[in-house]
Computed example of a mutant assay.
Amino acid sequence: MHKKTVSRLRRARRARMHMRKLGAHRLSVHRTPQHIYAQIVSPDGGQTLVSASTIDKDLRAEVSGHRGNKSAAELVGRTIAERAKAAGIQEVAFDRSGFAYHGRIKALADAARENGLQF
């Protein structure tokens, strides 16, 4: 693995261990050049409760063209917040998976906050 990837995974692991101590639901985000994924994981880390991504059939129609941009990330953030509220989840800890809180990651987080998730 590249040094950059190893560093990102180390940052992610450190943050996840802290979230596990808190015992909070975790909003985990992963990004690739073409897609962005979000899922809410149970406090013990053993079960995915809610998920949304740009590869979902529901969202694919709404995201036109390239799915790896900020508008697609905002749509995923809005969708994950709506699905979380439907599942009875309001408070989460934001797990950026070691990625910088900037660009698409920030857009997803802001959209999730605006639609009712608290973190």
Results as ranks from 00 to 15, higher is better:
79 T>Y: 01
8 R>F: 08
57 K>T: 10
102 H>M: 06
113 R>N: 06
70 K>C: 13
61 A>E: 14
69 N>D: 14
90 Q>R: 15
74 E>S: 13
61 A>D: 13
47 Q>G: 08
51 S>H: 12
20 R>V: 14
32 T>H: 12
66 H>M: 10
4 K>C: 01
73 A>M: 04
8 R>G: 05
63 V>G: 14
21 K>V: 09
61 A>M: 10
95 D>L: 06
75 L>P: 02
43 P>E: 11
111 A>Q: 00
14 R>N: 14
34 Q>I: 08
101 Y>Q: 12
109 A>R: 04
25 H>T: 01
43 P>V: 13
113 R>W: 05
54 T>Y: 06
102 H>C: 07
48 T>K: 13
45 G>H: 07
100 A>R: 15
109 A>D: 11
69 N>A: 08
70 K>A: 15
61 A>R: 14
42 S>I: 08
119 F>Y: 13
34 Q>F: 13
26 R>V: 15
74 E>P: 03
99 F>R: 08
50 V>A: 01
115 N>V: 06
81 A>Y: 06
11 R>V: 00
114 E>T: 13
36 I>N: 06
79 T>Q: 12
37 Y>C: 09
16 R>I: 02
76 V>W: 00
63 V>P: 05
62 E>W: 10
31 R>P: 00
50 V>G: 00
10 R>D: 10
52 A>E: 05
2 H>W: 10
29 V>G: 00
116 G>N: 09
114 E>G: 15
76 V>P: 00
65 G>S: 13
52 A>C: 05
92 V>W: 06
45 G>S: 04
95 D>A: 05
105 I>V: 15
7 S>E: 15
24 A>C: 07
76 V>E: 02
71 S>R: 07
17 M>R: 15
87 A>S: 11
94 F>C: 10
43 P>H: 10
